[in-house]
Simulated assay, not measured.
Amino acid sequence: MQPILSVSNLSKCFKQADGLFSSRTITAFGGVDFTLERGRTLAIVGESGSGKSALIRTLAGLLTATSGRIYIDGKPIGTLSSQQRCTTIRMIFQDPNYSLNPKITVGKILNAPLELNTDLNKEERHQQILETLKLVGLLPDYLAFYPDMLSNVQKHQVAIARAMILSPDIIIADEVLATLDISLRFKIVNLLIKIQKIKGTSYIFVAHNMHLVRHISDDIMVLHQGSIIEKGPSEEICENPQHEQTKYLLLTHQPNFRK
């Protein structure tokens, strides 16, 4: 079966000022190759500065790749219209306190992607919003709420609903658990797993906590200094890591790890 996402020799470089009249090139990541199968979860892990954020922002279209190719369902991503791209790949940002507009209601937050990217009429959009709210475990009453009226977990549920409103094939989740305490993290993780079972959504999941990564992911890819140093099935990576950086990440979050 053809993967939903295929990445070939992808790289991203930035120009950085180096003195008054000169600059130098900084490579955020380079030579990255991987695939994502339908209905599976790929976790991308690595220390701060490893290139994770630049990579997922390039996949989401927020950054332009310096070189390499991205294919969605076998098609070069550059051949897709903005609407096709939005209905294929969506992103959940790290902190909903910043990514949700506090001045508009939940209903308007969820309606905006539908207005911009679909031909649905008002009634059809409303029905889609209600179905998506139900999917993430929220009642229709929340449509009239503003983000500041919600608990932290409810804000995450709205952020997930906004990502799922167009029924995308791929969701990129960028450190979405970082602002939650441990008990609430598993609530959101279990919600994402439930959505995947219902919708068959593929996830790219970026996180630091290896215990949560092991729980939610099928495969793990480890980035270090912009390069992939290790990738494979989650159990294999966690039980038998080959690279010292992977062992360090496991040791940081799993005190009993001694390999």
Rank of each mutant, 00 (worst) to 15 (best):
P147C: 05
L63F: 01
L120N: 06
R69G: 09
E124Y: 10
E131P: 00
S151W: 07
E47S: 05
I44N: 04
D119T: 07
N97G: 07
A54V: 02
L150M: 12
T105A: 06
S53F: 09
S53R: 09
Q128G: 11
L55G: 00
S50D: 08
I109L: 14
G74E: 08
R38T: 07
N97T: 00
H126D: 15
R38E: 12
E47I: 00
D148N: 15
G46Q: 03
G137A: 11
H126C: 04
L63K: 00
V106F: 09
L135H: 06
T105G: 05
N111T: 09
G51W: 02
I44T: 02
L100A: 06
T41L: 13
G78I: 11
K134W: 00
N117K: 12
G137K: 08
G74M: 10
N117V: 02
T64G: 07
A144R: 12
A43N: 10
G51T: 03
N101S: 09
A54Y: 02
E115C: 11
L138N: 03
P102H: 14
V106R: 10
P140W: 10
N111A: 11
G74D: 04
L133M: 08
T64V: 13
P102Q: 13
V106S: 08
T41H: 13
N111V: 01
A54K: 05
G107V: 03
D141H: 07
L114Y: 07
N152Y: 03
I56A: 04
D141R: 13
M149W: 00
F145R: 15
E123T: 14
V106H: 06
D141L: 09
F93I: 03
I56D: 02
T64C: 10
L139V: 12
A43E: 09
Q128W: 10
E131A: 14
A144T: 08
T105V: 06
P140R: 14
T79P: 01
T58G: 02
L116A: 11
C86F: 08
G137Q: 09
G68P: 01
G78W: 13
V153E: 14
T79F: 05
I77N: 04
I89R: 10
E131L: 12
L135M: 13
T88W: 12
Q128H: 14
A144E: 09
T132N: 14
M149K: 12
I72S: 11
Y98S: 12
A144M: 10
L130D: 07
A60C: 12
